[in-house]
Amino acid sequence: MIPRRPSYEGISLYSPPSVHCRVDLSDNTNLFGMPPAAERVLREVSTSVVSRYPQTYAPELKKTLASYTGFDASWITTGCGSDDLIDCTLRAFLEPGERIAVPDPSFSMLAYFAKVNGLQFVPVRLRPDFDIDVDGLLATGARLIYVCSPNNPTGTVVSRAGLERLVDAAPGIVLVDEAYTEFARESVVDLVRSRPNVLVTRTLSKAFGLAGLRVGYAVGRPELVAEVEKARGPYKHTGVSERVAIAALTEGLSWVKERAEEIKESRKRLVEEFKALGFQPLPSEGNFLLVPLPGAPQVAARMRERDVNVRAFQGLTGVGDALRIACGPWPMMETALQALRESLR
């Protein structure tokens, strides 16, 4: 008989729907692809980079990220995507049985990470304006509070005043997920300088177009980062992914910024198109829109029949049924809109 952990009973694999369509707008990655400079490095990587271990704890990548963020390398840690760093943070600061408070709705992986780490997952409904409920989050007594801004799946952002009030009154760590920060008007990463209990995670999977290489990073006080690195382990990137990430953050940075502006323009145009169809997308600062739509799963299934894949949600807290649609090159958006119009008839 295989010995099992009782706390793992009922845990199923995180497995979002995987469907092959000609136009796939379901996972919020960069629909323009990857920076040409990064692609060149990927093609030219030497055999020795693959056959040998990378350096432990990614010092060269940290140095590059320090230049990109304006923080010293001692304030930065890296991981296998930002979700890996979220997982590491939970292990670093919470004992099994403790609580983690999370706005609802938000990044669905948090419930999974809470379960596998033996934590109590406490969802706190977003306010009607989709800002965080500061008092509700604090009332949980959780020693780690997670906030995603721009929030996935709503695309909405946390108010600066609300976040500062949360951080100042929180009994422990406030983990801010900025996976979509390159598409937003502003970041809150500066809070890590003035508040000792803030850790900000980010990723190169979205704006930087490197989702398949799994590179994320976190910014926080050196004493916080040191604890996360204990939970992280030494080899969380391949030598290939480190080199490609460095190229994207340096030579490829202008490409990333230009594509982010194009995505924001597509997002703006897409909002107007949805309004013309009679829908009201939530105000988004991510590279996607969430569109409340009764019967969204059925509509998404009909769109897949037309070779367009979008993410459907059913009964989302405070929203109901909805479609989440990634923004990208406008011809893709036109194809998606046509598939939607046909699917609504």
Rank of each mutant, 00 (worst) to 15 (best):
N117P: 02
N152H: 13
T156H: 05
D133G: 10
L110D: 02
I173R: 05
V157G: 00
A142R: 02
V122R: 13
G162W: 02
T140R: 09
G136H: 01
V176C: 04
A161L: 09
V116I: 15
A114P: 00
F107P: 00
L138Y: 11
P128M: 11
L126W: 03
N152P: 01
F107T: 15
G141I: 09
L166V: 06
D133C: 09
Q120W: 02
Q120N: 07
I145L: 07
L166E: 06
C148M: 08
P171H: 11
A179C: 14
V116L: 08
L138K: 08
L166K: 07
D129N: 15
I145K: 06
S149C: 11
R125P: 01
F130Y: 14
G162E: 05
R127L: 15
I145H: 08
L119K: 02
D168H: 04
A179Q: 07
A179P: 00
L144H: 03
L175Q: 02
T156Q: 07
L163K: 10
A139H: 04
D168T: 04
R143F: 07
P171C: 12
D131K: 10
I145C: 09
A114L: 05
V122G: 08
G118W: 09
L163N: 12
V167N: 10
V176S: 02
M109P: 03
L119M: 01
R160M: 12
E164P: 06
S106A: 15
P123E: 07
Q120S: 09
A170D: 10
P128D: 10
L144R: 03
R165S: 12
R125D: 04
A161F: 06
F121H: 14
G141A: 13
D135L: 10
I132F: 13
A170N: 07
D168Q: 14
V157Y: 00
E178Q: 14
D104Y: 03
Q120F: 00
V158Q: 12
V134P: 05
V116W: 01
G141W: 08
R165E: 13
L119T: 03
F113S: 07
T154Q: 11
R143S: 13
M109H: 05
V134I: 11
Q120R: 14
N151M: 11
L110R: 01
V174R: 12
G155A: 03
G141K: 11
M109I: 14
Y146D: 04
V147P: 06
P153I: 06
G172H: 05
V157K: 04
V167P: 11
A179S: 13
T156W: 00
S106C: 14
D133L: 08
A114Y: 00
A111P: 01
D177H: 08
N117E: 08
A111W: 04
D168G: 15
D177T: 01
G162K: 01
L163M: 14
L138F: 13
A179I: 00
F121M: 10
G136W: 02
Y112L: 14
G162A: 03
T140V: 09
G162N: 10
R160H: 10
A161K: 12
P123H: 07
V174G: 10
L137I: 06
G155Q: 02
P123D: 04
E164F: 05
V134E: 12
T156D: 01
I132T: 11
V174N: 06
S106V: 02
E164W: 02
